[in-house]
């Protein structure tokens, strides 16, 4: 991960291949994982079906915390996919990081601010869309002048800060984790302390990877929770 990426230009749009490969790989893993878990569902759940049902209950629980009423039902699928996708994205860079020819070819997609902002954008657009769909245009606009009219500027600014913090919190955590992984690897192969630095780096890498698994899980949970809380502000009428 040296901040040099392969770029291609297609239809006048620039693509960072590292990001796109990482997104694609994560999405494919998420799809096949969930697809495999959902094979042949039975009324009496067995084995892998329990895992998926637990996951669904978990993400539905996140949705229900923010939106206890029936308006939360439609967000169950989004919460599940968002959670599993971010979780897989966070972990994938802990396992694979590919640098070749002076370019970074593979790392966690969520270690890039563009991607986390893209995810936050999806949540933002969706929350505003359903805000209008559920409460109507007037109800949606009324949300900006509540509880009192002079708070409208703050409410508008809050939309941006929510968006930015949602994206950058995830990016910062994952990016920092991967940078540290890289630094530990460089320490291990620096040859400064000979075999001692290699062994120390090896152990440190294991410890940091384990901790990053924890951080990645927590961040996925936080992202989905906040996404649902922000959505509930738009959708739920107090």
């Amino acid at each position: 991960m040296n901040e040099k990426y392969p770029y291609v230009t297609f239809l006048g749009l620039h693509f960072n291949l590292t990001n796109d490969i990482a997104i694609l790989v994560s999405a494919v893993i998420v799809f096949f994982l969930l697809f495999w878990l959902a094979r042949k569902p039975q009324l009496r759940p067995r084995g892998k079906q329990n895992v998926l049902e637990y996951l669904i209950d978990f993400t539905n629980g996140i949705v229900k915390q923010a939106m206890p009423g029936p308006e939360g039902n439609r967000f169950g699928l989004l919460a599940l996919v968002l959670f599993v996708f971010i979780f897989v994205s966070n972990q994938i860079g802990l396992i694979f990081q590919v640098d070749a020819g002076g370019l970074t070819w593979f790392r966690s997609p969520t270690a890039d601010p563009v991607i986390t902002m893209g995810l936050a954008l999806i949540v933002l657009v969706m929350s505003h869309f359903f805000g209008v769909a559920v409460k109507g245009i007037s109800g949606y606009l009324k949300g900006y002048v509540s509880p009192v009219a002079f708070l409208a500027p703050i409410n508008v600014i809050e939309e941006f800060t929510n968006f930015i913090t949602l994206a950058l919190r995830l990016y910062g955590n994952i990016y920092a984790g991967e940078v540290l992984l890289l630094l530990v690897r460089q320490l291990a192969f620096s040859g400064a302390g000979g075999p001692v630095s290699f062994v120390a780096g090896f152990l440190l890498e294991i410890i940091w990877q384990g901790f990053s698994v924890f951080i990645g899980s927590i961040q996925a949970y936080i992202f989905v929770t906040l996404a649902m809380v922000y959505t509930s502000h738009k959708v739920v009428s107090e």
């Binding site: 749009l13 620039h14 990001n19 997104i23 969930l34 996708f85 893209g118």
Partner: peptide, 22 residues
């Protein structure tokens, strides 16, 4: 480009997971 790619991938993933798993 990356944002569009992400959104497109995510939407397709959402549809596929919705249909085959959810």
């Amino acid at each position: 480009g990356d944002t569009l790619f992400l959104v497109a991938t995510f939407v397709v993933l959402l549809i596929l997971v919705g249909h085959f798993a959810w």
